[in-house]
């Protein structure tokens, strides 16, 4: 990846993070931790990898994205807003009674959302369905999905993992947002779903392990893993709450909104980071 593209993606990710904060602050609730940890993966998909367009949002040939860990939709809404699928100012209506921006993604309400998700494990299966449909019809689109590490405690994740490998869904690329934390604490303490790499390998997947905040590593892994005849799992080592120092690696920030002072502090930090990125050569 050239430095210009890298800088561009960093900028987009920073803008996404800023909008995540707006969403959960003005919404008064939501899930900042996992939204922030998955922001770079979503920035990469929407601003580099995926073939989607605002002009033709329902194009049958478009790539698909399923946010299986649907509670992290502030990151998805932010990307959709920055792409022009929804107005940026609507982000502040997140979770409000009169808003179409539901607490979890609703494909019937939000332009650009390919699948309604929220109940953990189900989006991963739906992504498999989209990939299988392309195999049946001979369509060339790819399907991308993000699952959570805590989400991987759901049995359905492994049913879908079996399905994708069995049907050789090499048009499916999944990202595992491995931030190590879930609502009740460290995933290893709550119900250890690790190791992920050997498990997905044993299920028949091609597995890559990357720094989930490095666009270069993500991009290299994605490119390496296409055309191998197997579904792809990119395990992304991430930091929960990434980009807001007081939220980082704190499971308490899984699902709560910042107070006014916290919001100001977080926005200041994110703004400074954005200015720094913009100043880079």
């Amino acid at each position: 990846m050239d430095s210009k593209k890298n800088k561009y993606l960093k900028e987009k990710a920073a803008e996404i993070r800023s909008l995540i904060l707006d969403a959960v602050y003005y919404g008064g609730s939501g899930h900042p931790g996992g939204s922030l940890s998955s922001a770079d993966i979503i920035a990469y998909l929407y601003f580099d990898k995926m073939n989607v367009s605002v002009e033709n949002p329902h194009d049958p040939a478009r790539d698909r994205f399923v946010l299986s860990k649907g509670h992290c939709c502030p990151a998805l809404y932010a990307a959709l807003a920055l792409k022009g699928f929804i107005p940026v100012e609507d982000i502040k209506t997140f979770r409000h009674i009169d808003s179409y921006l539901q607490g979890h993604p609703d494909m019937k309400k939000v332009n650009g959302v390919d699948m309604s998700t929220g109940s953990l494990g189900q989006g991963f299966s739906a992504a498999c369905g989209m990939a299988k449909a392309a195999k049946i019809t001979g369509s060339k689109y790819r399907v991308y999905t993000i699952i959570g590490d805590g989400e991987s405690e759901e049995g359905q994740i492994w049913e879908a993992a079996m399905f994708a490998a069995h049907y050789k869904l090499d048009n499916l690329t999944a990202f595992l947002d491995f931030n190590g934390l879930q609502i009740d604490g460290n995933i290893r303490d709550v119900m250890n779903p690790t190791p992920f790499d050997v498990k997905f390998q044993a299920f028949g997947w091609h597995v890559e392990i990357v720094d989930g905040h490095s666009f270069e590593e993500i991009d290299n892994a994605v490119k390496r893993s296409e055309g191998l005849g197997r579904p792809v799992m990119i395990i992304c080592n991430t930091v929960k709450g990434k980009g807001v120092s007081f939220m980082e690696n704190k499971h308490a920030w899984h699902g709560k909104a910042p107070k006014a002072a916290e919001y100001e502090t977080a926005k200041k930090e994110l703004d400074e980071n954005l200015s720094k990125i913009r100043g880079e050569k």
Binding site: M115, G121, F124, A126, C128, A134, S139
Partner: peptide, 15 residues
């Protein structure tokens, strides 16, 4: 459970 969600994914493509 997986079957029903996979079916949903296929249905999103119009089939």
């Amino acid at each position: 459970g997986n079957m029903i969600s996979v079916a949903a994914g296929i249905a999103t493509t119009g089939m």
